[in-house]
Design a protein around this nucleic acid. Structure first.
Length: 370
DNA sequence: AATAGCGGCAACCGCCTGGGG
DNA sequence: GCCCCAGGCGGTTGCCGCTAT
């Protein structure tokens, strides 16, 4: 026997709320307060499901809601938070006062996600090439056909990237910052710990590391094929106890001969764009720096250098997003319509395979951490 | 002017979680 | 420990307005 419905739907009204219903609901909540949603419709004389009332109140009628267009700052914050949190709209919304998760979700799907496409060619020698980017077609129908809302891109080689870093069933702390202070040795930590970029991604403002290949003058482009990868590595920090990604590279992933064992971490596809790698990343594993120097960066055992796809900050606090110098580091190249690679999205068509891979990688990662 | 397609927003649906009995 | 309930969350769908043809 299935779960009982949240309310008896027979005879209840559905669809758009009328002004009269809004007024009744508003007055009732102003008088009696929020809560008891199940009994609210009956008590208020509304022919609505309690859930519907709660949503209507939460998403539209609440007095503290901010109406109107999203500001540029909000856009940027959403982008950064989404990069870190994935589709955790409620968490994202908690950082945008006056905005609801539903609103942000809709805004993301209709506005922001369509901008999140920058494709870098993973050739060892070439710069990223954007040959053509077209808007997705077909509206919602098209969205269905192109899950992940990917634009149609004509490019020699398209690098997949997870659309939304799903964390499966892990529970994120209620606040983003909390999620960034996790004990890496805690049980199940592999699902919750973010990747922190190495120093090569230091953006110069002294505080923010931004996982952003466009901003990384050295090794750029990181590609992680699976969602779990975003949270499967972590960077240590002496004070926080977290592992640094660079440390992982140095201590865990490099064998004595310098060969990388990144694949053990589930990095199915990681690449280096060394076109602009004139200088070396100090935290980069020596073997990689050597290859950078030599220009031999692509096809050997060490085929990868990983700059992470996730966006985290040196102290692992999302609040630092707010310190980001958006003026100096434009998200957009208006002319080229290029977005940083960390804003890629990917259309995954075979979820089962992906989850299988994720699980395998999580196990590998867990054992590696242990 | 008609209409088909598309985009965006509001709302719904189903699942999950936490709390209380 | 189990069950039920309320509430929360994320994905999906319906509807409506706008635009291009």
């Amino acid at each position: 026997m299935g779960r009982a419905p949240c309310c008896e739907k027979v005879g209840l009204k559905k669809g758009r709320w009328t002004a009269e219903e809004d007024e009744i609901l508003t007055k009732y909540i102003q008088t009696h307060g929020e809560g008891s949603w199940r009994s609210l419709p009956k008590n208020a004389g509304l022919l609505r499901c309690g859930k519907s009332c709660r949503l209507r109140w939460a998403n539209y009628l609440r007095a503290d809601l901010k109406r109107g267009n999203f500001t540029g700052e909000e856009d940027e914050l959403i982008i950064k938070l989404h990069q870190s949190l994935g589709n955790r709209w409620s968490l994202i919304a908690s950082h945008l006062p006056g905005r609801t998760d539903n609103e942000i979700k809709n805004y993301w799907n209709s506005h922001l996600s369509t901008k999140m496409y920058c494709f870098r060619r993973l050739s060892n020698q070439s710069l990223p090439v954007i040959l053509n980017v077209t808007e997705r077609k077909g509206g919602r129908k098209g969205m269905k056909d192109n899950q992940g809302h990917t634009m149609e891109v004509f490019i020699d080689e398209v690098v997949p990237f997870p659309s939304t870093p799903s964390l499966e069933k892990e529970t994120f702390p209620s606040a983003v910052e909390d999620s960034m202070h996790l004990d890496p040795y805690e049980e199940d930590n592999e699902r919750r710990i973010g990747v922190m970029p190495g120093s090569c991604q230091h953006t110069g403002d002294g505080d923010g590391y931004v996982e952003n290949s466009m901003l990384c003058p050295t090794a750029t482009v990181s590609v992680v094929e699976k969602e779990s990868d975003i949270f499967s590595l972590f960077e240590s920090n002496e004070s926080s106890g977290m592992l640094c990604f660079d440390n992982i590279l140095d201590n865990e992933l490099l064998q004595t001969n310098g060969d990388s064992t990144l694949s053990q971490w589930g990095l199915n596809q990681v690449s280096v764009d060394l076109e602009n790698s004139g200088d070396l990343c100090p935290n980069r594993p020596a073997a990689i720096n050597k290859q950078v120097e030599s220009g031999d960066c692509g096809t050997g055992d060490l085929t990868t250098y990983f700059c992470t796809t996730s966006c985290f900050f040196d102290d692992c606090e999302v609040e630092n997003i707010l310190d980001w110098d958006w003026e100096r580091n434009e998200l957009w190249d208006e002319k080229e319509c290029i977005m940083p690679s960390w804003l890629w999205e990917l259309d995954y068509n075979d979820k089962d395979d992906r989850l299988t891979l994720e699980n395998n990688d999580l196990e590998l990662h867990g054992s590696a951490v242990a």
